[in-house]
Design a protein around this nucleic acid. Structure first.
Lengths: 206, 206
DNA sequence: ACGAAAGCTGGACGGATGTCCGAGACGGCG
DNA sequence: CGCCGTCTCGGACATCCGTCCAGCTTTCGT
């Protein structure tokens, strides 16, 4: 055990400043990651953007992998929270169709860079095995969220969903990814097409 | 103009050994990219894997960006060719449903690493603007291919497709991407689920 | 108020990367 | 054979990266 072992330092206290600073640094790192992308973000970028230094990063995180992993797991929490707000509280099918499309379009517009980071990290996980577990966790939580919307719509129209959650999530994810691509390329119709596509997929898949 | 300007050297000849060697090197580079991923591939990796040297790469390509861009455009040609073989020649709907699912599953299994590279490059294009045009070209050609399958199926059952090509491609792409993720993670059911998902999407979307 | 622990700083280090170049090898033509 | 343009090699170079550390300042318990 070296004197810079983050683990032992952490366990030495209760639930304190140390974890708080870790979260603070991780959030700053997340902003930089979202801005530059995984492959182009160095520890120096993160340090500079967060107003700290290289030493601080290594003081709170054993190495870059631990930092990124911690960032991703925190990012996951944000994702789930973000998507859960879309869990439409509609009382009739038409309202839910509108809410679902509107929710997806809203998060696409507001958090475009975070979604971009998500697709970046998911692609990286195809090459870097150390990311796979966290990525699979996020993917599963997103699948559950789409599943809730599909189930809710099916219940409102009084039928059972006619496709698996996996297929439904895959289709919506593809739709969302294409919309993100076009939105970031400056296509003004991307958001409206996402709304229309959401409505179409939802009515056809259940 | 320096003595290493690939452009002028190229125009100095007809259509000759120079272009041929470029293609040869680009194909070797493509294999390395597919193996290690964009972010983890260096010029030294490419040189070593292709049995050449750093100097040769810089002799035939001005810099790394030109190499990668040329690789991607060549990769696009492969992609289109590959996907065009799926253009099912079926004579009845049931046969096309089977052929389409079988074709997607076959290319997913045989060319998994190339498809992985495609999703990697498409993610990178969200950050690196210089890739966007080529990526958009590939995306458009893939959308056309899915469109042909959808149109063919609709014609065989005697109706007009009930969704835009964009939505259809987005849904199939999401399905394929999820299948790739699971296939590369060792999920043995990924291929069968892709076949089933293809059938489901095709019948629901037209 | 004092000393120890925690927190932080800036830079040093070895290694990897993209770029570039000098020198040699190859191959066709005079 | 001898020459010269084409091609290739391996290394030099500056830069950037992740890691690590010696020493400084701040915080806090006693």
């Amino acid at each position: 055990m070296t004197s810079t072992d983050a683990e032992s330092r952490f366990s030495r206290r209760r639930a304190d400043k140390f974890g708080e600073r870790r979260r603070e640094l991780a959030d700053a790192a997340l902003a930089t990651l979202a801005d530059r992308g995984y492959a182009r973000t160095s520890l120096r970028d993160i340090a500079q953007a967060s107003g700290s230094s290289l030493g601080v990063l290594h003081y709170y995180f054993r190495d870059k992998v631990e930092l990124i992993t911690y960032c991703v797991s925190r990012y996951k929490a944000r994702c789930v929270e973000r998507y859960d707000t879309i869990a439409a509280h509609a009382t009739d099918p038409e309202e839910l169709l509108r809410d679902a499309g509107e929710g997806l379009a809203a998060t696409l517009e507001q958090d475009a860079l975070l979604h971009r980071l998500w697709y970046d990290l998911r692609s990286q996980s195809l090459f870097e095995e150390s990311f796979r577990l966290d990525v699979a966790d996020i993917d599963a939580s997103l699948e559950r969220m789409i599943g809730r919307i599909v189930d809710a719509y099916a219940a409102l129209v009084g039928v059972e969903p006619r496709c698996s959650r996996g297929v439904a999530y895959a289709a919506f994810d593809g739709l969302f990814q294409q919309a993100l691509l076009r939105h970031l390329s400056g296509d003004p119709a991307a958001l409206d097409d996402l709304r229309a596509g959401t409505r179409l997929l939802l009515t056809r898949l259940v």
